[in-house]
């Protein structure tokens, strides 16, 4: 897995802020890996976590400086993964195996859960850092994966 760059932005909740950020990222020739936006402890302020994998690490300070110029942005920084908790939630829909215990034991190892069970399919949920998420997907290879969806990364500095 190539190195993940994470940028954490706090911005006023106004129309167009996210668009201006994504325009900048495209202009700097980066491709987004994940982007999440959610409420914070302060009303009217959104937390935006952006990650990319490819690209030139030298350009990160440039992107940070450019995002900082967006009028509604209150703060922005490239976070150091050693000092940051980064989590995402993964949902995986698989074809229901004959023996359900095979799947429940695997889910337990990853401290996940079965969130939906139908006659044909099972939806599993795992939360954690990216490494764990990718590990879980690899471990599921023996099952028939129908769909994968994830929330994208939310980062919080220690």
């Amino acid at each position: 897995m190539s190195k993940l760059h994470t940028i954490l932005v706090f911005a006023q909740n106004k129309r167009g802020v996210l668009e201006r950020i994504t325009i900048l990222i495209r202009r700097k020739m980066y491709n987004l890996e994940t982007i999440t936006a959610s409420d914070t402890e302060v009303e009217g302020i959104k937390r935006i976590t952006i990650t990319f994998t490819q690209g030139d690490a030298d350009k990160i300070p440039q992107i940070v400086a450019q995002i900082n110029k967006i009028v509604e942005v209150i703060s922005v920084k490239a976070v150091d993964s050693a000092n940051t908790v980064e989590r995402e939630i993964l949902l995986v829909k698989i074809k229901r195996p004959r023996n359900l215990s095979e799947i429940t034991s695997l889910v337990n190892i990853f401290r996940g859960s079965v969130v939906d069970l139908s006659e044909q399919t099972v939806i599993l949920q795992v939360a954690g850092e990216r490494k764990k998420i990718l590990g879980f997907i690899t471990a599921l290879k023996q099952f028939e994966i129908l769909e994968i969806g994830s929330s994208g990364i939310v980062a919080m500095e220690r």
Partner: peptide, 14 residues
């Protein structure tokens, strides 16, 4: 116009 102006302005709003 806001969409067109975003990349070429400091700020744009409707």
């Amino acid at each position: 116009i806001i969409g067109l102006m975003y990349p070429i302005t400091k700020y744009a709003e409707m």
